[in-house]
Amino acid sequence: MARLEVTRVGNGIVPPISFTLQGGEILCLSGPSGSGKSQLLRMLADLIPHDGQMTLDGCSSEAMPPHDWRRHVGFLSAETAWWADTVRDHMPPDAETRFDDLGLPLRLLDSDPALASTGERQRLALLRMGPPPIMLLDEPTSALDPGATRLVEAYLHRLRDEGTGILVVSHDAAQRARLATRQMELGA
């Protein structure tokens, strides 16, 4: 199982933070708006410049090509973005086997992502990730109704049981209680 070690990672806005995320656990991150939760996730995915050190199974992020790091430490933004004509064009090969788990109809596969609802796009974006060994999820259920939220939570529990390490940003204390193996608060 993968192990992400974060040592004094921060930038001018987010103060340095250190923690470990182990495969098979869900770490829930909370904190007031503007405390830098999304920025921290972007730093962990090496999408914005940062200080400090990150290693995956002992291998430093700087020793790996950036795309390789991001294939292992995947980041899902709160806002989804799409570029190809159909949903299928964005998806990894086996994604359709998981459509049902998230309550997504298979007909979406060959449709234009712009035609899917916001909640459908949020779940599609989650499936688009793969999943990688470490997942960084920025409010992955913000656009979902309670039923779809529970499906996503069950999906994340299953990935955790399969050995994925998951860091989730959530403003919902009840959701954190349902999901978290551990919790962490920024700006506290």
Partner: peptide, 12 residues
Amino acid sequence: DRLVIETRLALG
């Protein structure tokens, strides 16, 4: 399209 670029990079 900065979010598209970031998303594509984030996907590896």
